[in-house]
């Protein structure tokens, strides 16, 4: 477990449009769906769901077998952008318990290349409660960094400083110009639920009751993933499906 105090300088960084302040700590919300903590040189991504395609294939729903490659390519781009010292995969990194074993050799090699020279932390998720035996990286149920706790499944009630995944939030944004449905970070400033990062990961509307216990009395903003940046959008503008 890592504990580190966040410097004041790190906090001052907040302010640019794509920055999210969570429990007083300033993160950069990347349009890829990753969060970057510059002070710690740390990147966190949630719900990669690697090998979801082949998981369906076992039931003879033959989805294109390129989802793992697509997710890793997406991850490679964001890692290249920030060159972090540490990467936290926030659980459900693998779609099922056998997923890591099904990974193809090329995908395995790309993952190894990403892991080289940096700390890699697999947080346990409900899809992947046990660490992937054949892969590098340390496994934890949760970790703390200063006031921030990284865990897979968000806890109900007041969980200040929690950054979690699991729910795959998406926002349906409606304006006079039209409507669209996109992945988003959901945050009220105290905690944050991250968007799913995996190519085949679906989405749960922010208006779903599953989010209600996490933000009692205070509606979260949706930090919606646009093409090149993240847009902070009020809860009123996010509609149910």
């Amino acid at each position: 477990m890592t504990h580190q105090r966040i410097s004041i300088a790190g906090l001052r960084n907040a302010g640019a449009a794509q920055d999210i302040l969570i429990a007083g700590v300033g993160f950069t919300a990347d349009a890829s769906g990753a969060l970057y903590l510059e002070a710690e040189s740390l990147i966190v991504v949630a719900d990669l769901h690697l090998e979801k395609g082949s998981s369906y294939a076992r039931r003879r729903v033959l989805l294109p077998p390129y989802d793992t490659a697509a997710t890793l390519a997406h991850l490679t781009r964001v890692i290249a952008r920030y060159n972090p010292r540490r990467v936290v995969a926030l659980g459900d990194s693998f779609h099922d318990r056998d997923a890591a074993a099904r990974m193809g050799n090329e995908d395995r090699a790309s993952l190894r290349a990403l892991q080289a020279g940096r700390d890699w932390i697999w947080i346990a998720g409900n899809h992947d409660p046990l660490p992937p035996a054949s892969l590098l990286g340390e496994a934890h149920d949760e970790i703390r960094v200063g006031p921030i706790t990284f865990r897979h499944e968000p806890r109900a009630g007041d969980a200040r400083g929690e950054i979690a995944g699991h729910l795959h939030p998406v926002a349906r944004v409606v304006t006079t110009r039209g409507s669209l449905r996109r992945r988003c970070f959901a945050s009220d400033g105290a905690r944050c639920v991250m968007p799913a990062f995996g190519a085949y990961a679906g989405g749960l509307n922010l208006r779903d009751i599953a989010f209600a216990p996490l933000f009692p009395g205070r509606a979260p903003h949706a930090h919606v993933l646009g093409r090149d940046r993240v847009y902070a959008i009020g809860h009123e503008q996010c509609h149910s499906d």
Binding site: V61, L62, L63, P64, Y66, D67, A69, A70, L167, H168, A199, Y200, A201, G202, G203, L204, N205, D208, A210
Partner: peptide, 30 residues
């Protein structure tokens, strides 16, 4: 390729829907 009920809006606590748009995006790139 997929079943009619896919992505399956069956009753479940969490209606995480996986849309065919995601499949389309992956397939057209690869």
């Amino acid at each position: 390729l997929i079943e009619r009920r896919f992505p399956g809006k069956e009753k479940s606590g969490r209606q995480v829907t996986m849309s065919t748009d995601l499949i389309y995006d992956v397939l057209r790139r690869h």
